[in-house]
Deep mutational scan, measured.
Amino acid sequence: NQASVVANQLIPINTALTLVMMRSEVVTPVGIPAKDIPRLVSMQVNRAVPLGTTLMPDMVKGYA
């Protein structure tokens, strides 16, 4: 199973992502692939993302 990107903490709306905010985990449904973590750094979330939430492409500005 492919690992997805999961929030390692509460990420407030419009926050630029950093490595410490994200972890990889095998979850259902599948979200953004963990291999894309380096690409996500500095991108902003367009909503508040609670701890443990799988990041989906529509949550990150400029990803999709």
Rank of each mutant, 00 (worst) to 15 (best):
P50V: 15
S42G: 13
I13N: 10
L17Y: 00
P33D: 15
G31H: 01
A48F: 09
G52T: 03
L10Q: 11
P33W: 07
K61R: 11
A7E: 00
D58I: 09
V41S: 03
V20C: 13
I37Q: 12
M59N: 06
S24D: 15
M21W: 02
L40Y: 03
P12Y: 09
V30M: 09
S4M: 02
N14M: 08
R39N: 06
I37N: 01
R39F: 06
M56I: 08
A64P: 09
I32C: 08
A64V: 15
T18M: 06
A34S: 10
I32F: 03
M43D: 04
V49K: 00
D58R: 04
R39S: 12
V27Y: 02
L51P: 15
P38H: 05
V45I: 09
A7R: 01
D58N: 09
Y63P: 06
K61D: 12
R23Q: 06
T28F: 06
S24M: 09
D36P: 00
V30A: 11
A16V: 12
S42V: 03
L19G: 12
P38L: 06
A3W: 09
T15P: 02
P33S: 09
L51F: 07
V26N: 10
V26Q: 09
M21P: 02
M21K: 03
S24H: 15
I32H: 00
L10E: 13
A3C: 15
L55I: 12
D36C: 07
G52D: 15
M43I: 04
V6M: 04
Y63A: 03
I13V: 14
V20G: 11
N14W: 07
V5A: 10
N1H: 14
P29A: 06
L40C: 10
S4P: 00
V6S: 03
N14F: 08
P33Y: 11
L19W: 06
N1R: 03
K61Y: 08
M21A: 09
V60R: 00
L55H: 01
L55T: 00
P12W: 09
L40P: 00
M43S: 12
V41I: 11
V20T: 12
T28G: 07
V27K: 06
R39H: 15
P29C: 13
M56H: 10
T18K: 06
L40T: 01
P29I: 07
K35P: 15
A3M: 13
S24Y: 09
N1V: 15
R47A: 14
V30F: 11
A7D: 00
V26G: 06
V20R: 05
S42A: 14
V60D: 02
V26A: 14
P29H: 13
G52Q: 04
S4G: 06
R23H: 07
P33V: 08
V41Y: 04
A7Y: 01
M56A: 06
Q2D: 15
V45A: 07
G31I: 02
S4N: 00
A16E: 10
I11M: 06
M21Q: 09
A34Q: 04
A64I: 14
Y63K: 03
P29L: 06
A3P: 14
T53L: 10
K35G: 14
G31W: 02
M43E: 08
T15R: 05
L55K: 00
T53E: 10
M21E: 02
T54E: 01
P50N: 12
P12E: 15
M21R: 03
V5Y: 00
S4A: 03
L19R: 06
R23S: 09
S24Q: 14
V27F: 02
T54G: 03
Q9T: 12
E25V: 04
A3Q: 10
N8T: 14
L40R: 00
N1Q: 15
S42T: 14
R23A: 14
A7T: 13
M59S: 07
T15W: 04
Y63V: 04
M21G: 03
K61N: 15
V60P: 01
G62K: 10
V5C: 08
R23W: 03
G31K: 01
V49E: 01
G52P: 01
V27L: 07
P12H: 08
N8K: 10
T53Y: 12
L17A: 00
Q9V: 11
T15N: 05
L17P: 02
Q44R: 06
M59T: 07
V6L: 06
D36R: 03
L10V: 12
S4H: 01
T53R: 07
P50D: 15
V49H: 00
I13C: 12
A48D: 09
I13R: 07
N8D: 14
A48W: 05
M21C: 04
R39P: 03
I37E: 03
L10C: 13
P12L: 07
A16C: 15
P33C: 15
T15Y: 07
A34F: 07
N8F: 07
N14S: 05
M43W: 06
D36K: 03
S42I: 03
V27A: 06
D36W: 03
M22D: 02
I11A: 01
G52F: 08
I13P: 10
T54D: 01
N14D: 11
E25G: 05
V45D: 01
N46D: 14
P50M: 07
G52R: 05
L51W: 10
V26H: 12
L19Y: 08
N8V: 13
M56Y: 08
M22V: 06
G62S: 13
V60S: 01
L51V: 13
G31V: 02
A48N: 12
Q44S: 08
T18I: 05
N8L: 05
I32W: 02
Q44F: 09
T28M: 07
T53Q: 06
G62V: 04
V49N: 01
A64C: 15
V5K: 00
A64Q: 13
V30N: 13
T15Q: 10
M43A: 07
N46C: 14
G62F: 08
M21Y: 05
E25P: 00
V27W: 03
M21S: 06
R23V: 13
P12S: 05
E25H: 05
V30G: 11
Q9M: 14
A16T: 09
A16W: 09
L17S: 00
M22A: 02
T54A: 06
V27N: 04
L55Y: 00
P12C: 14
L10M: 12
T28Y: 13
D58M: 11
A64S: 14
V60L: 09
A34T: 11
N1L: 15
V45L: 07
A16D: 14
P50L: 05
E25W: 04
V49I: 13
Q9K: 09
K35I: 14
R39Y: 13
V27Q: 09
Q2F: 14
V26S: 11
I37S: 04
I37A: 07
S24G: 10
A7P: 01
T18P: 00
V45N: 03
P29S: 07
A16I: 09
Y63M: 05
L19F: 05
L17E: 02
T18V: 05
N14G: 12
